[in-house]
Design a protein around this nucleic acid. Structure first.
Lengths: 329, 329
DNA sequence: ATACACTTTGAATAAAAATTCAAAAGAAAT
DNA sequence: ATTTCTTTTGAATTTTTATTCAAAGTGTAT
């Protein structure tokens, strides 16, 4: 009780109960706690930011439910969850990603609480990382968390190592990751990695996951590949010229959702998306800038479960309707 | 979407997401929804009051955890949960009961979500009713909910019928209750009831419950027996003279937690607490006025699991320490 | 149609929460 | 011990939320 960090947490919990459960005002709480109203505000803010307080809304708006049904139907999904997100002036793609992460955090927690799933394969990306951070603590020390791709990337706080790490913190299971790069420098280097026993064993293990949780990468400036300098601008331009619209587990996709045979795609160290086809694959994606990539990824039919924000969902649905019309013509 | 009730709910859900998840102000939401700020406030208030929004605080204050441990130890409880409740000027026992109900609602939902429990026996009382109302909706259509006592009581919205009903609404299972009075008018009448096949069958079924959820009754003006005119003032005085401090499943208790052989106690139609000894018995109790009754009930050692408010818990703990000292002396 | 009771609405206002800012209190380095 | 830099604090203020109240709307009985 003397540690100042513990004291803050303890007081934050007391303040949170008085505020949220009893409905007392910050001034009343301040009086009881012997601090200022501003301090009470800070305590409650701390409680919220450190995840001590979880606010759950039982239902999603009709608009979302409709999109869920439409997308499930169009892309043959086993489940689809559309995170409510009505765009308002002043918010960017980041806000959409936050919403997806929040909703996905709840879904992941529920999914993993049942002991059906014994091993999850995880990809990389900002959305994924945020979703795991938003996940409530559960106890699943029997769960294995395996990275499906190479885990060495310069800096980048959303790298596989980091996602696995965060996952482990929340569920208490065992984490595995590949100490090799995400993208090899050459085909030869990639083959060298894959030839190593430790790597192939790891990938073999990853392949056996009961659930894969992955992101969808876009090729614009917002995409993690660009943003984190995993590919150069020249390489990006090359990919765009070849018709790539995004990546799924490090492999590049055409707008039709088929694999684009490129040099760079073959340099990805990790599971190929064709290797997980047929397994349960949960994709998390948010932000309007991911439209092309998401549409392509869904058309690949590898994804079985989707969490997506409302705005992007509406765009994808609209796009797929357009495609259908064009085909009919 | 044209039904005004549905419209309100739908808009409330939209507003709730924007407010709680996105952190938008009511004015921003009002603009998007095309209504006034006051309306947005009302929509969010509606969402909260109708249970669409659930706020969970991950941990309880240290004070509560300490009391939980102390009470578990003293009264041999399998589990004990102390609902945070630091008394502040202006709140009555009702506020404490609310807190117990909130916390208990969460515990019940979690307990029943696992399919371990196939049948619950429920008692009566305000606290119980409130706890069930606070329970999140779960799907357990295989669950049986059985009243452990007679269900006919004049008015009184916390009667067994009502508790079973509310329970059923939340979990979707089957509800059973006894269409006989809670307290018979005489011993003869009670025996007549018990002699009926339907009644004895029902009680037999109730006895097989995997979990009993009950309240603890006090004999002061706050107690449900008095408040709802289930016993007359004269009867109450008689009970007090005989040394009764409260009731457990309709039977009256001495301060030591032993059964008080009284006329009235024998008129209770329903399971006797001795019939559930050894089973899992979850008691819910809140409010400082229940001190004597709670202490006695815990001493009976029938209760295995307890949800209690912080203030009452502290009082009970203090009282039991006093008793111990007196014994040592 | 008209009167009556009862809701629902939003502008205005009161109350509470969030932020700002300057002062005080701690650390870290000299 | 002194200086410097960072952090923490609460009074004051701003911003947001909650309540009040009068007006408009809705349904019902006559």
């Amino acid at each position: 009780m003397s540690d100042p960090k513990d004291w803050t947490k303890h007081m934050a919990i007391r303040a949170a109960w008085m505020s949220f459960s009893r409905g007392k005002t910050q001034s009343e709480i301040a009086q009881l706690l012997g601090v200022s109203q501003a301090k009470v505000h800070r305590l409650i803010a701390f409680a919220q930011s450190s995840g001590l307080i979880r606010i759950e809304i039982a239902e999603r708006p009709l608009e979302c439910l409709e999109l869920e049904e439409a997308l499930s139907e169009t892309f043959g999904l086993r489940s689809c969850t559309v995170a409510p997100f009505e765009p308002m002036k002043g918010d960017t793609d980041d806000a959409a990603i936050d919403e997806v992460a929040r909703v996905a955090g709840g879904i992941l927690a529920k999914l993993l609480e049942s002991k059906q799933i014994k091993q999850v394969g995880v990809g990389m990306g900002r959305t994924l990382k945020a979703a795991v951070v938003n996940m409530a603590q559960i106890s699943r020390s029997d769960l294995s968390i395996v990275s499906v791709s190479g885990s060495l990337t310069r800096k980048l706080s959303a790298n596989p190592y980091d996602v696995v790490q965060a996952f482990q913190e929340r569920v208490g299971g065992e984490g595995y990751f590949l100490p090799v790069p995400y993208l090899a420098r050459s085909l030869a280097e990639k083959e060298m990695f894959h030839a190593q026993d430790s790597v192939s064993e790891m990938l073999g293990k990853a392949r056996d996951s009961d659930l894969f949780v992955i992101g969808i990468g876009s090729l614009d400036d917002e995409g993690h590949l660009i943003r984190n300098r995993m590919i150069s601008d020249a390489e990006r331009d090359e990919l765009l010229r070849e018709g790539a619209v995004g990546d799924l587990m490090g492999r590049f996709l055409s707008p039709e959702g088929t694999l684009l045979e490129t040099q760079l795609g073959n340099q990805a160290v990790g599971l190929h998306f064709e290797e997980v086809r047929g397994s349960r694959v949960l994709a998390l994606v948010g932000g309007a800038s991911k439209l092309e990539a998401t549409h392509a990824a869904l058309r690949s039919r590898v994804i079985t479960d989707l969490v997506i924000d409302q705005t992007l969902a509406a765009l994808v649905q609209q796009r797929s309707k357009g495609e259908q019309l064009r085909v009919v013509k």
